[in-house]
């Protein structure tokens, strides 16, 4: 079951390890992460850093093309 943020970033809770690597590269400090919870907040500018850095590909950018 994937969660969608801003219709653009798909997040897969089954894959995520709650490791914080995405938080460390987010230029907007837009990610809230506890050991069991992940949210992208309004500050996000869709820069894709989090999607690209995720070691497990728990995040995916939805391109409409």
């Amino acid at each position: 079951m994937k969660q969608l943020f801003f219709d653009k970033i798909a997040y897969d809770r089954q894959v995520c390890d709650f490791c914080g690597t995405c938080v460390g590269v987010c230029p907007q400090d837009a990610i809230e992460l506890t050991e069991a919870d992940f949210t992208i907040t309004e500050r996000c500018t869709l820069c894709k850093n989090c999607v690209r850095v995720c070691p497990l590909r728990a995040l995916e950018f939805i391109d409409e093309r």
Binding site: G24, C26, V53, L56
Partner: peptide
């Protein structure tokens, strides 16, 4: 914030 090229991302 860590720059993308400086973040070693690990599994």
């Amino acid at each position: 914030q860590t720059k993308m090229r400086d973040m070693e991302t690990c599994a």
